[in-house]
């Protein structure tokens, strides 16, 4: 099953995809989100978000700066101030 992942910056919606797993750099440590993750809200530190499309695929790296990650029933939303 796929996880719905959205990466939003103030300037635009960077990504909106169905992915397998996303690793988020939280302020209190990295955490990975799979489909069906418990609701969570966490601030993120500057770092890389790793997006894995398939269980064995190579992760895709997106550098983000400052923001918030929210996991709810709809999926994972990362609100970043800046994303590359």
């Amino acid at each position: 099953m796929a996880l719905h992942f959205e990466l939003v910056t103030p300037e635009r919606l960077v990504r909106s995809d169905e992915v397998y797993m996303v690793t988020v750099p939280g302020t209190e440590g990295d955490f990975a989100v799979l489909e069906g993750h418990a609701p969570l809200m966490a601030t993120i530190r500057d770092g890389n978000v790793l997006v894995q499309m398939t269980p064995n695929g190579a992760p895709e790296t997106i550098a983000v700066r400052g923001g918030l990650a929210e996991v709810n029933a709809r999926g994972l939303t990362v609100l970043a101030e800046h994303a590359e």
Partner: peptide, 27 residues
């Protein structure tokens, strides 16, 4: 819809709610 449906207790905060809010308000 998701925020209110998940209820109050279900959402985990990391760090605490207050800290997230303190981070969020200037933003």
């Amino acid at each position: 819809p998701a925020l209110s449906n998940d209820g109050d207790a279900a959402v985990e905060y990391e760090p605490s709610e207050e800290q997230i809010l303190a981070d969020l308000l200037p933003r």
